[in-house]
């Protein structure tokens, strides 16, 4: 686990570190090698283009004039206007969807981070009878897929009046993230030296003070990575709002977009604009916090 985290750490930022390159790069370049190198860059650029093409297509179609969408919907950047965005935002209801996405994602992400940090500390640092059993119950969530219990959960939520409510969906989103979160945060707390808490205890700190004042500040980077990862996961989550917010009053961007698409109105312009609104926060977070994102997703691979 710790190793996984370390790998994520190196992943994007320190790949340039010296000594991590294969031997070829260390030699002085011969003309032949230079040709090979530019050939390689050409290949990489082609692959990048394939990788990014669908994203460009969303941008291009969203930013066309409506007339252009009708005649040439998928030609790249053949015109420029905000008509589609304005349309999606007002008539398409995407301003509401965006708001609902924020209302669902922000609290569930905060809850995942807070609950996981508290539990991670306990499972790493505070031994008591029954703790191991509790830990197994939590980690069981890493093995059992959401499919296993999604259908009964629907009727359970309906039974307790949480179906089609924001608190219900927020709590379900939270519960889908805490198993991984606890596992992830526990690894960070396990790595901290025991001398720290012993010294604090000698100085007369209470257990609560040790947790809050000594330990918490030391796992900030871990909690940050967890927050970024969980935010993206919850923002992108499709099945939870699809199942547990069926009424449509609290639709987030993902199911809102799906609904809009199902309308079959061939309204490609606003649909593209809606897609753009949906992906933009993820793209921004991804670019600004790539290290945390990669770290989260690599460790997230343990999730079954």
């Amino acid at each position: 686990m710790t190793n996984t985290t370390a790998a994520g750490d190196q992943l994007i930022e320190t790949a340039e570190a010296a000594g991590n390159r294969p031997p070829a790069a260390r030699n002085r370049m011969s003309p032949r090698r230079r040709t090979a190198l530019s050939g390689k860059h050409l290949l990489l650029i082609v692959i990048s283009a394939i990788s990014l093409f669908p994203v460009l297509l969303i941008f291009s179609t969203a930013l066309k004039t409506q007339a252009d969408v009708r005649t040439n919907p998928f030609g790249l950047f053949s015109s420029f206007s905000f008509e589609n965005l304005v349309n999606a935002w007002t008539v398409g209801g995407f301003s509401d969807y965006l708001l609902n996405s924020v209302i669902l994602t922000v609290p569930s992400t905060l809850l995942v981070v807070v609950l996981s940090t508290m539990a991670g500390y306990t499972f790493a640092r505070l031994p008591f009878r029954g703790r191991t059993f509790a830990f197994y119950l939590v980690v069981l969530g890493l093995l059992v897929p959401f499919f296993a219990y999604m259908i009964p959960l629907f009727f359970q939520l309906r039974g307790i009046g949480l179906l089609d409510t924001l608190p219900g969906a927020i709590l379900v989103l939270t519960s889908t993230g805490v198993s991984f979160g606890t596992f992830f945060m526990r690894a960070f707390f396990s790595d901290l030296p025991t001398e720290l808490e012993q010294a604090a205890r000698v100085d007369g700190c209470s257990e609560w003070q040790i947790f809050v004042k000594i330990m918490l500040p030391l796992v900030r980077s871990g909690a940050g990575a967890l927050a970024v990862f969980t935010f993206i996961q919850n923002w992108n989550n499709f099945l939870v709002p699809l199942l547990y917010l069926p009424g449509g009053g609290y639709r987030p961007l993902t199911t809102g977009l799906y609904q809009f698409m199902g309308g079959r109105s061939i309204d490609i312009g606003p649909l593209a604009a809606g897609s753009l609104i949906t992906i933009i926060p993820v793209v921004i977070i991804f670019i600004l916090m790539q290290r945390q994102v990669a770290e989260g997703f690599i460790s997230g691979a343990v999730k079954g």
Partner: peptide, 10 residues
């Protein structure tokens, strides 16, 4: 890596 983090609906 970007395609991997995008929402599946989009």
């Amino acid at each position: 890596f970007l395609p991997y983090v995008l929402p599946q609906v989009a």
